[in-house]
Design a protein around this nucleic acid. Structure first.
Length: 869
RNA sequence: GCCGGAGUGGCGAAAUUGGUAGACGCGCUGGAUUCAAAAUCCAGUUCUGGCAACAGAGUGUCGGUUCGAGUCCGACCUCCGGCACCA
């Protein structure tokens, strides 16, 4: 035996050296070729690659390499989402500056990505914390300021009263600051916003055209934008007898159900509503003040999440609103299920037709009047569906749509209100009170106000060489950095010390990839590459990032920078990487988590897990279930150690072989072993084949049945793999089909010249089908099979439709829906032929017994169902 | 609480448009090879009954539509993602 064993380390290093030497992943714009822009979400440089990265980038690389083999001009770039909170935390912990920590991580992670064999054009690398990147973001912001698209207003933040700092939501644990432990306060400070709401209508409308996006993402975005058509109208504040408020105050409410106005039995203001103080009656003042206080301390999400407490959380103001429909006063409450950020911050409450209003009314003993007729048996709940209006005077008998129209028209005629479209979507707050971010390019002048930094003074540089102690941003602490002169009047002025939300950087990095080195935000090269043909990233970005980047793209379009309306035509959201967890509870009640690598699992004779023991001491540990890989549960598997042990091809193969790309992947050491075993088998079998060669050219004219079977399976597999990779994203089934073909091929012991030629065709097919997934071993085998040139530029195998035709098929025979026989029939047999063959089967006869045949259903080439009485 | 997703053998999963439930892999069992082991190769493996042929049950729970439901409809349970300052 002269064949060598599979040696991934040696093969991968050699193949990767070649790629580097020939710079094979660098691409240029070439209008004569079809382009394919494959983008994976850029990583935060947290220190080292984790399995989530490996999976994400393997998926992107597989898709890229597949399209490259189809002959397209493929761009696959990579970069670093380098600003953000973790760098500040690491800086405090390690007493380094966030910048140097970040740059070190980038160096390390870049080399890890290369070791995986991902085909990136590094000449296009983007590092978002570098001034040559963020300067354009600053420039864009100053333009948006001038357009009125960026504006400043007060907004709430989490305030840590001990550390005297603003906290991110993540830094608030059970209502307390994570470092100080102090109870967090809500504080209102001026912040910058981008008017994403100006684009609400377009962001919503164009979702319909995104056929290549998952429905789940589109539905979530649709609901997030939350368009609702309704009516806004004013009601006068009055007392319990209907006498108007002495100041003539009124409250504007928004409703999507003006048709139910006759059923309004109370009204509600958000606790932050501006009129609360003015309308509250003296005897209710204390209760109202206490309620407002309590509501102010909770974030919106907490307020909505209080579940059981929800219906209780409201207080009567002592004031009333005059219902113009019934011409009667209704009591006015405060409740925190009404949000100031939506509509007018005030609602008319109609418990008969709204479940939350119903719940609130029951607790506060408020009257309930149904104004839409529910079905007869309906009770104990609001009726929110269609039906004829009742108890509604002149609306009675109308269906909901008709009654809405009539009520709205009436309000308009009375001059009390008008039609209104409301969005749940709110403007994008981009200010962060942190250091490690892009400085917001604004100067505050006592005379001229907020002035954008002029273009010739950009970028506003963030100092990188700083002492970072954690509590206060270094640029806030440094009066010299802040000090400047006003570009308008030349007087003394101060810089903005807030930085941008990091979603700002991640909203346009994909545009910058398309034009490296451009002396502008982008140049016309962007229009060669855009729109992105395939975007790949985690489902956790379904709303925020994927909405912001759509918005930002449209903003860039309206600045004349890009031509298309939507930035990405196809989107794949990959699932998380999860693993088993193991733990022990210590005597003091604390929990200690053990890494799966340090635990042995005990099984019964069927392989069912019985328990687990720690490798080190042989004592049992508790099995904690399968969870997302994380530091806190100590269930992460280090990709580096896996690559060292098995090679990049095995890790790539496993990370896409065990479940579909859009579902979670359960890490399994033995699954990795299985992937490794497959590659070893592939290697040895191809080597065996090569040694028995050379082979004649395939003559498809003179093949035996078995030879035809192999060819049919090969060409079925070619068709399936292409479809699975590009359309379905089910790499797992593509790999299963390739493995199945490999298994059949290994049992195909045909030493004739034709047999060898068939086998040769099949191995060369398999090697190309696997090339996008395991590029290194396939490149090596490709050359050993006698082919020349880089495999990544070899043509994707073509499907020979004539090889796929079958002369006979298996038809299932059912009696009353239960399988009773399987028949081998000539393809295309008609119903009578199949029926005759079925009736000749003893087992079919037996189940027909003496029942009369009522019906026979025939699905050609698949199934025959005989229905008997 | 609201929005979205998932639930199928001992395990990861497959079944693409309503038509054979369990492809492929892991694990396990038996065998070959070996002084022995590892590695490798071969066979078996949803559950129950049966030597077998075969029969019955079976896709989170309960109900429905259909000749036929993992797939469609209604109600529910559990787990996961997001909820605007983690990225």
């Amino acid at each position: 035996m002269t064949q060598q064993n599979y040696n991934p380390a040696e093969i991968e290093s050699r193949v990767q050296q070649q790629w580097r030497r020939d710079d094979v992943f660098a691409v240029t714009e070439d209008p004569s070729r079809e382009k394919f822009y494959c983008l994976s979400m850029l990583p935060y440089p947290s220190g080292a690659l984790h399995m989530g990265h490996v999976r994400n980038y393997t998926i992107g690389d597989v898709i890229s390499r597949y399209h490259r083999m189809l002959g397209k001009n493929v761009l696959q770039p990579m970069g670093w989402d380098a600003f953000g909170l973790p760098a500040e935390n690491a800086a405090i912990k390690n007493k380094t500056a966030p910048a140097s920590w970040t740059y070190q991580n980038i160096e390390h992670m870049r080399s890890q990505l290369d070791r995986m064999g991902f085909g990136y054009d590094w000449s296009r690398e983007v590092t978002t914390c570098k001034p040559d990147y963020y300067r354009w973001e600053q420039l864009m912001f100053t333009r948006l300021m001038k357009k009125g698209m960026a504006y400043r207003k007060d907004a709430e933040v989490n305030w840590d009263p001990v550390d005297q700092t603003v906290l991110a939501n993540e830094q608030v644990v059970d209502g307390r600051g994570w470092r100080s432990g102090a109870v967090v306060e809500r504080k209102s400070i001026p912040q910058w916003f981008l008017k994403i709401t100006d684009y609400a209508e377009e962001l919503l409308r164009e979702l319909d055209a995104l056929e290549g996006w998952p429905d789940a993402v589109k539905i979530m975005q649709r609901n997030w934008i939350g368009r609702s058509e309704g009516c806004e109208f004013e009601m006068k504040v009055c007392d319990e007898h209907g006498a108007p408020h002495p100041d003539g105050l009124g409250v504007r409410v928004f409703t999507t159900r003006p048709d139910t106005s006759f059923g309004m039995t109370y009204a509600v203001l958000a606790p932050e509503h501006e009129l609360v103080a003015r309308i509250t009656a003296a005897e209710q003042a204390a209760a109202v003040a206490a309620f407002v206080d309590q509501a102010a301390s909770a974030s919106e999400e907490d307020r909505m999440a209080e579940g059981g407490a929800l219906e209780k959380r409201g207080v009567f103001t002592g004031a009333y609103l005059f219902n113009p429909f019934t011409e009667k006063p209704v009591p006015l409450y405060l409740a925190d299920y009404v949000l100031m950020g939506y509509g007018t911050g005030a609602i008319m409450a109609v418990p008969g037709q709204d479940q939350r209003d119903w719940d609130f009314a029951r607790v506060h003993d408020l009257p309930i009047v149904r104004t839409v007729q529910p079905p007869e048996s309906w009770e104990g709940e609001a009726w929110v569906e269609d039906g004829p209006a009742i108890n509604s005077d002149w609306l009675d008998g109308m269906e909901v749509a008709q009654a809405k129209e009539a009520a709205t028209a009436w309000l308009e005629k009375q001059g009390m209100g008008e039609r209104k479209v409301n969005f749940r979507l709110r403007d994008w707050g981009v200010s962060r009170q942190r250091y490690w971010g892009c400085p917001i390019p604004v100067i505050y002048c006592p005379d001229c106000g907020a002035v954008p930094v002029p273009e010739d003074q950009l970028p506003v540089l963030l100092p990188e060489d700083v002492e970072f102690m954690g509590v206060r941003s270094p640029i806030k602490a440094d009066p010299d950095w802040r000090k400047t002169t006003c570009p308008g009047c030349g007087g003394a002025a101060e810089r903005e010390t807030d930085t941008f939300d990091t979603f700002m950087e991640s909203s346009w990095y994909m545009h910058r990839y398309a034009c490296p080195g451009a002396d502008a935000m982008v140049d016309d090269r962007v229009n060669y590459w855009f729109p992105i043909d395939q975007y790949v990233g985690g489902i956790e970005h379904a709303i925020l990032h994927l909405m912001y980047f759509r918005f930002y793209h449209k903003v860039m379009r309206d600045e004349g920078l890009v031509h298309c309306d939507e930035p990405a035509t196809r989107l794949l959201c990959q699932g998380m990487v999860v693993a088993d967890t193991y733990y022990r509870e210590e005597a003091d009640g604390s929990v200690h988590w053990f890494n799966p690598a340090d635990v042995d699992v005990d099984r019964d004779e069927k392989g069912k897990p019985l328990g687990a023991t720690l490798h080190e001491d042989g004592q049992p540990v508790m099995v904690g279930g399968v969870e997302k890989m994380s530091k806190s549960k100590n269930n992460g598997v280090d990709p580096q150690s896996m690559v060292d042990r098995y090679g990049a091809d095995t890790v790539r193969l496993f990370s896409v072989s065990d479940s579909p790309a859009n579902q979670s992947l359960e890490w399994s050491d033995s699954g990795v072993e299985g992937a490794f075993r497959y590659l070893k088998r592939l290697w040895s079998q191809v080597m065996k084949h090569v040694e028995a060669g050379p082979y004649d050219r395939l003559d498809t004219g003179a093949l035996t049945g078995q030879q035809k079977d192999i060819r049919r399976m090969l060409h079925d597999t070619i068709a399936k793999v292409g479809d699975d990779i590009a359309r379905r994203y089910t790499f797992n089934t593509a790999i299963a089909a390739i493995m199945e073909l490999t298994n059949h091929l290994s049992r195909f012991n045909d030493d004739s010249p034709e047999g060898g030629a068939v086998r040769d065709e099949a191995w060369k097919g398999i090697v190309r089908l696997l090339a996008p997934i395991t590029p290194h071993i396939c490149d090596e085998l490709w050359h050993r099979l006698g082919e020349s040139g880089p495999l990544m530029d070899a043509a994707w195998p073509e499907v020979d439709e004539s090889a796929r035709q079958r002369s006979s098929v298996q038809v299932v025979v059912q009696v009353n829906g239960k399988v009773r026989a399987r028949l081998e029939m000539p393809a295309g047999s008609d119903k009578d032929a199949v029926k005759a063959a079925a009736l000749a089967e003893a087992n079919v006869q037996r189940h027909l017994a003496d029942g009369a045949i009522r019906k026979v259903i025939h699905i050609p080439d698949r199934l025959l169902n005989i229905v008997v009485a």
